[in-house]
């Protein structure tokens, strides 16, 4: 299988990486970059556990080839905490007990970031819609929705400051 070098930004750092043409993004991140925070739940685009940000927008990394990242910016869950400080969404997930097994959590958080990037003041329905592609078998989503709503408020206050 052919390989080629791609240039892209990963969690804020410019990188050149030699990748297999047919390697999915999730496998590239996990096996080649050892960034195992991005999870494999179904590998067919249905569960959202592998969600990452591509140029700020949530995408499922199992339905994307690593080579497609060439020239783009990728953020994974490992890149969300900045300078040791948790993102408000991460903080609210902790405080609201918005996770149990945690396997859906990285993908859920990436979708939530993407949602709040586009819509900083979502209604409950918009939050539910924003994470409808992320399956969670443990929580019933109640506390996840609560955590995202609360993070949105906190972030709005920060922006206002």
């Amino acid at each position: 299988m052919a390989k080629r070098v791609i240039s892209f930004k990963l969690n804020g750092v410019d990188r050149d990486e030699l990748v297999l043409d047919n390697m999915t993004m999730v496998d590239f991140l996990r096996k080649q970059m050892h960034l195992t925070g991005t999870k494999r739940g179904c590998e067919e685009g249905e569960c959202g556990a592998c969600t990452i940000l591509l140029d700020g927008k949530a995408v499922t990394s199992c339905t994307m080839l690593a080579v497609e990242a060439d020239g783009h910016e990728i953020v994974t869950i490992e890149g969300v905490r900045k300078d040791g400080v948790l993102h408000p969404i991460q903080k609210e997930f902790i405080d609201k007990w918005a996770l149990q097994c945690g396997f859906c959590t990285p993908g859920m958080i990436m979708s939530a970031i993407s949602l709040l990037n586009e819509n900083p003041n979502p209604t409950e329905h918009e939050i539910r819609d924003g994470i409808a592609g992320n399956l969670c078998r443990c929580t019933g989503y109640v506390k996840i929705v609560e955590a995202i709503a609360s993070a949105a408020k906190i972030m709005a206050k920060e922006v206002a400051k």
């Binding site: 996990r30 494999r40 969300v80 991460q90 405080d95």
Partner: peptide, 21 residues
């Protein structure tokens, strides 16, 4: 009080079987 594993889980550092390298 919060879950003792919460921070690891929200930052992607929690190690599940497939993450054992």
């Amino acid at each position: 009080y919060v879950r003792i594993d919460a921070e690891a889980k929200v930052t992607g550092t929690a190690v599940y079987t497939d993450d054992v390298y």
